[in-house]
């Protein structure tokens, strides 16, 4: 499997995401936000961090950076993409995923391990978990309160596109949503950080399943 990780000037989980891809045997290409082309890869990782300082709105400036059209083209071609935390915010700002991430209802940044319920196993990202299983993955965000209009929420539900929900909602997200899939199920945006849950010594190894699942599917493709 070949993965690209996009680095924006304020990304700070780009290394961690690359390390996670590499840990399951993927080859990683680093892409700078000022690049306008993506190399031919199986999956594009959009890492966490503060892409442009979270000034204006989280992800809003990144969604307009030179690499954004190439990302959109990759997704339109049916390519896989994984956006984590700020990466999820960027995916919503580009319109590649619906909805928006608003400020946490407690108005505070929150970093802690949380329990997630796997809502669908019908995606390369979640097939390794089994629907209904509960996994531990940390969150670290100020703006993770998933918000969408009623129609969007209904579509996400009806099309089984809610990937993860919080067992205990930490941020006010509608319907406890922690991560969602695109209509073709190949783009996952999630606020929790699976790349920080790659080894039990870090507090959880549950994130590894996602990367292994991704690799396994790519190897078959």
């Amino acid at each position: 499997m070949k993965a690209a990780v996009i680095t924006f000037p304020g990304s700070n989980c780009d290394r961690d995401l690359a390390v996670a891809f590499e840990a399951v045997g993927a080859e990683v290409v680093h892409v700078w936000h000022k690049d306008t082309d993506l190399p031919k890869v199986d999956v594009v990782g959009i890492p966490g961090g503060f892409s442009f300082g979270d000034y204006l709105r989280c992800g809003a400036i990144a969604a307009r950076s030179p690499i954004a059209p190439a990302l959109a083209a990759h997704v339109e071609r049916g390519g896989y993409a994984l956006g984590i935390c700020n990466g999820f915010q960027i995916l919503t700002e580009t319109g590649l995923l619906p909805g928006a991430l608003m400020r946490n209802t407690g108005l505070k940044y929150i970093c802690k391990q949380v329990k997630l319920r796997v809502e669908t196993s019908d995606s390369v990202f979640t097939s390794g978990y089994g629907k209904g299983s509960v996994v531990t993955v940390p969150i670290a965000h100020h703006d993770g309160n998933y918000t969408a209009d009623a129609e969007t929420l209904a579509a996400l539900r009806d099309q089984d596109r809610i990937a993860f929900t919080y067992a205990e909602n930490p941020n006010g997200a509608m319907e406890d949503i922690a991560g969602i899939l695109s209509a073709n199920r190949r783009v996952l945006g999630m606020m929790p950080h699976p790349e920080r849950a790659m080894d039990p010594v870090l507090g959880s190894g549950d994130g590894r399943v996602m990367f292994e699942g991704l690799l396994g599917r790519m190897a078959l493709a």
Partner: peptide, 16 residues
């Protein structure tokens, strides 16, 4: 926890 949960303690994915 009120204090340290407002700090990212896990970025860099090496916090044991």
């Amino acid at each position: 926890a009120w204090v340290y949960e407002q700090y990212d303690s896990m970025v860099m994915a090496d916090t044991v």
